[in-house]
Write a protein that binds this DNA or RNA. Sequence first.
DNA 1: ACTCTTTAGTTGACACTGTCTACTCAGGGG
DNA 2: CCCCTGAGTAGACAGTGTCAACTAAAGAGT
Lengths: 208, 208
Amino acid sequence: MPVRKTKPADLPDACVREALAIIETSGVERLSLRDVARRLGVSHQAPYKHFPSRDHILAEIVARAFDAFARHLDSRPRHNDPYEDLREMGVAYVAYARAHPLQYRLMFGTPLPDPHQHPDMMRRAQHAFSLLNDAIARLGPQEVDRSADQATTLDALYVWSTVHGLASVLQTDAAKTLELDAEVSDALVQHVIARIGTGLRPPPASPD
Amino acid sequence: MPVRKTKPADLPDACVREALAIIETSGVERLSLRDVARRLGVSHQAPYKHFPSRDHILAEIVARAFDAFARHLDSRPRHNDPYEDLREMGVAYVAYARAHPLQYRLMFGTPLPDPHQHPDMMRRAQHAFSLLNDAIARLGPQEVDRSADQATTLDALYVWSTVHGLASVLQTDAAKTLELDAEVSDALVQHVIARIGTGLRPPPASPD
DNA sequence: ACTCTTTAGTTGACACTGTCTACTCAGGGG
DNA sequence: CCCCTGAGTAGACAGTGTCAACTAAAGAGT
């Protein structure tokens, strides 16, 4: 429990970083603003001068996670073939979830602070989703009986579902409960992403 | 805040039910054993005579959710065609998640009590997954270059990923954040389950 | 120079929480 | 009759989020 002697210059930022550090080692349910304050060497009420409530700190942490996530997705290798590009995005998605399980769980695996109370967080989350949506849109419309927009959204949600489910399965408590080993995990990523591909390519001749 | 006058006969069971009721209306993070005791008209320490800690009550709630979930999956309409049967299972899976969002979130959407501390919960969770696994196994091996068992597990996890991701997307806070409307949700279920089907059928001629 | 207001930070309280420990009190063998 | 065990009670403790009142410093306006 390191107690800093010198008070940090940017207290709001320091709070968020320290809170994240606490979550990292002790889990989100153990986060307490008083502990944050204590480690920063300020009074137990100082953080409240910058964040109206505990949830507002959490919302900021989550929002930053969405930012980093979007940045990671955006920095994937690009391909001209939109299917290849989407595949690459899936890989990047899962890679991020595996490399930053904490952030991923904060975004998708824990009850979020009510989004309507934290519109800033909501906006930054939507931006991350829009990246996926764009990649799908580049595939072109898959169905004729729906508007292109709606079809794109549906497929985006399909891909998201799969890839999100994959990420969850790999690192959620449920996976620990099932005791998968690492070899299966690696194979699974390739497997699922391939399956998404075959699922997305327009079926030769069968109505939806 | 209903305070019961008559003390319940089966206190452990009453605790679990009352705790679930509290979670239902106020969320899991607001659950307090003291509140449970208060509503049951017993002292704040009475529940601790039957549950060593708050987590043990949660574990029991989650375990019961897995039981109910497994029962629901098991009572789906059966088909001889294993693909049809699997489809039916996907429908049942998502239906349960939509009908009992609270239980579903308790199982997959919130940090669980450490499974190794609650082996009973773990066992009942594994049983639920085994149902899905069995349904996939009935498809027969999809690939020749892997053992049948491993291929089955991979496909089971693929299906689970998709269907779990779908369920999550539909009811998680993240979905609220994205503001999907009900029409899209309904279409999405059909859409995704169809896509799983086309993804699962062995591809005509393309290496994995 | 003198106020006046805003801002960051402090201190103290309040009502909670989970959990520890010690108590009561009923029943049922020995 | 004693004693033990199990269920339930009561009191305390440290820790929590949050409310309210306070201090100190820094500008802005006159």
